[in-house]
Design a protein around this nucleic acid. Structure first.
Length: 286
DNA sequence: AAAGTTTTCAACCGCATTCTC
DNA sequence: CGAGAATGCGGTTGAAAACTT
């Protein structure tokens, strides 16, 4: 016995919305609001659509003041910062970017921002690699060393062209894999210039959990202390703004993220060399 | 110009949470 | 308090557009 479907699949249209459908939905909601019942709404206005589909269409496309595309640098930074601190909680991230939807941000992150950051990382690495090779050659020449074996040169870390995220290591669950990938990305972002606050709100097990003074007074609404120090080039740190803004639609933080955070603090204090990071990521494993 | 490949993004799916009775 | 319904959310898919060969 499975869960009952939310609507009669046979009588429901799927796929892209037509302008007529958009107009019907928009006109109705403009006039009556959603009525607090998305499931009943499509029948009321004669749309052969699932209520969930109507809701999604409204939230992601028809709702007033929606912005599409054209993400600014500032928005990029906010997205990155929040991704570092809370992970793929797109609805929370979207709440900080007026006019943006969670779906939009999720797509933007997955298709562009992630690649943009990885590209930046690779460039940075290549220049570092070039410099260290030059220095090495210089040193070798002055000491009169013979050329070292290729293996040793390879100790100068190689940043792979492709997937920087953790390679497909078997995991016991998809959830674990998700967290692992996320942790890798977060490490990468730290290296790119982000940094976690490591000096406060350490509770018991090292978890940096902080209750936000949220006006909604929901007792289980928590969020990390998100004081993240972005590259100094940013004149006004978005996260500072966020910290001042109690409006964050923060939800709970699960212990897995908290554990990850603690590990990141440890990482932060360790060697800044790429090789250690590579070992950590398992890139030495071909 | 055509075929093949990659990228983008709207929409769907299913699970988790919240609400209502 | 429990069950079922409704809603919210994040991951994934697939069609269309853009790009490359």
């Amino acid at each position: 016995m499975g869960r009952a479907p939310c609507c009669d699949k046979a009588n429901v249209k799927k796929g892209p919305w037509s302008p007529e459908e958009d107009a019907k939905l928009k006109a109705y909601i403009d006039q009556h609001g959603t009525g607090g019942n998305w499931i009943a709404l499509p029948q009321k206005i004669g749309l052969k659509r699932c209520g969930k589909s109507c809701r999604l269409r409204w939230l992601n496309y028809l709702r007033p003041n929606i912005k599409h595309g054209g993400f600014s640098e500032e928005e990029d930074r906010i997205i990155c910062s929040l991704y570092i601190s809370i992970g793929s909680r797109w609805s929370i991230i979207a709440a900080q970017l007026p006019g943006r939807t969670d779906n939009d941000i999720k797509n933007y992150w997955n298709t562009r921002l992630k690649k943009k950051l990885l590209g930046k990382q690779r460039k940075e690495h290549q220049s570092r690699r070039g410099n260290s090779l030059k220095q090495y050659m210089k040193r070798s020449a002055s000491v009169g060393d013979s050329m070292v074996p290729a293996d040793n040169i390879n100790q100068s870390p190689y940043w792979p062209e492709l997937p920087v995220l953790a390679p497909p290591i078997p995991h016991s669950s998809t959830q674990e894999h998700r967290i692992d990938s996320q942790a890798s990305m977060r490490r990468l972002l730290i290296k790119l210039g982000g940094r976690f606050s490591d000096d406060d709100h350490v509770i018991n097990d090292g978890t940096t959990l902080h209750q936000f003074p949220n006006e909604s007074s929901s007792s289980d609404q928590h969020i990390y202390d998100q004081t993240i120090y972005l590259p100094s080039s940013s004149s006004s740190c978005p996260m500072d703004a966020l910290n001042l803004n109690n409006n964050i639609d923060a939800q709970f933080v699960n212990s897995q993220y908290a554990m990850d955070e603690a590990n990141l603090h440890m990482l932060q204090g360790q060697s800044d060399t790429f090789s250690s990071e590579l070992q950590e990521k398992g890139y030495s494993n071909t």
